[in-house]
């Protein structure tokens, strides 16, 4: 092969970014779902991801489950936690001004993050179990990354299918578009909101469980990841699932590019800068998604 070295390296970095992007896409889809149906900015989303990651880690270690089985357990547990959070907390302020639900979820975030820090301590954990690679010419693909990407992508597509093709998805979309009208049509919007939030936290949990297979994380991870998810959603245009998918890829690649060519510490700078620039100058997303 006569690919120049620098080009192969660049390609490799971009591929790595795209592979991480699969998980980001999944997580951002969860955030989008909750925002769409409940019109609530879930600022605790990153902490639900963290709970998913920590639960998967604990379950896998204690029960000896495979990381993938542990991911499912985490999803179920977090769906329950999400349902309770929605039913007893968020639902009670659903008709209040935006900042009330924002402060409420801010409180939930504090409790989850600091509670988790109390229980598990600040040590980093990881479920990374496999480091074998496929080699294609000058490029190498970590098998685990590919698997995680495929899972992230598959779950995102499954969610889209659920939303587009099922009666359940129909009721979610109806509520997202017109809460009053949906109610008038006999949809139990309270239940729909609970289902949407539970599904959103379950998705957060799965993406957290996938992340803990790739990286080391600790109970503070939510602080950064909630912003990454907002960045993705904003870059892709709020409420647009295909936009969020593209946004996830953009953020993933931007991150790995910065880490590789500048410095690892700067990767967050890039992400937040991108986030702020898009938020302020293109609030409808770089892809011109739905305006808000």
């Amino acid at each position: 092969m006569n690919t120049p070295g620098w080009f192969a390296a660049l390609l490799q970095v971009i591929i790595n970014g795209l592979l991480v992007g699969g998980v980001y896409a999944l997580s951002a889809a969860g955030l989008n779902l909750v925002f769409g149906v409940l019109k609530v900015a879930n600022i605790a989303h990153g902490d639900f991801m963290m709970l998913g990651a920590m639960t998967a880690y604990a379950v896998s270690l204690k029960l000896g489950l495979s990381p993938y089985a542990a991911m499912l357990v985490a999803a179920i547990v977090l769906a329950g936690i999400g349902a309770l959070t929605q039913r007893f907390l968020v639902e009670r302020v659903i008709h209040s001004p935006m900042f009330v639900s924002l402060l409420l979820l801010f409180a939930v975030s504090m409790i989850l993050r600091n509670g988790a820090l109390h229980v598990w301590g600040p040590t980093y954990v990881s479920l990374s179990h496999d480091s074998s690679v496929w080699t294609v010419g000058p490029l190498s693909f970590t098998k685990l990354r590919v698997a995680v990407f495929a899972l992230g992508l598959g779950l995102t597509l499954a969610l889209l299918w659920l939303l587009q093709k099922t009666a359940f998805g129909q009721s979610l979309r109806a509520t997202a578009q017109h809460m009053d009208l949906a109610e008038a049509c006999g949809i139990n919007v309270r239940r729909v909101r609970m289902q949407a939030f539970a599904l959103g936290t379950a998705i957060a949990a799965m993406s957290g469980a996938l992340l803990v297979m790739l990286f080391s994380v600790n109970p503070s991870m939510g602080e950064i990841f909630v912003l990454k998810c907002f960045a993705i959603v904003v870059v892709g245009g709020l409420g647009s699932f295909s936009g969020a998918f593209a946004g996830a890829m953009i953020i993933g690649v931007a991150e790995t590019l910065t880490s590789y060519y500048a410095a690892t510490q700067l990767s967050d700078v890039t992400v937040f800068l991108l986030f702020l620039i898009v938020l302020v100058f293109r609030p409808s997303g770089v892809l011109g998604g739905k305006a808000t």
Partner: peptide, 22 residues
């Protein structure tokens, strides 16, 4: 406005943290 400002400020703080380190 609203949540955008709140979350944007959160992002700005993280940006400052990252910049202070860099």
């Amino acid at each position: 406005k609203g949540a955008y400002f709140a979350v944007g400020m959160l992002g700005l703080t993280q940006l400052f943290v990252a910049l202070a380190g860099a």
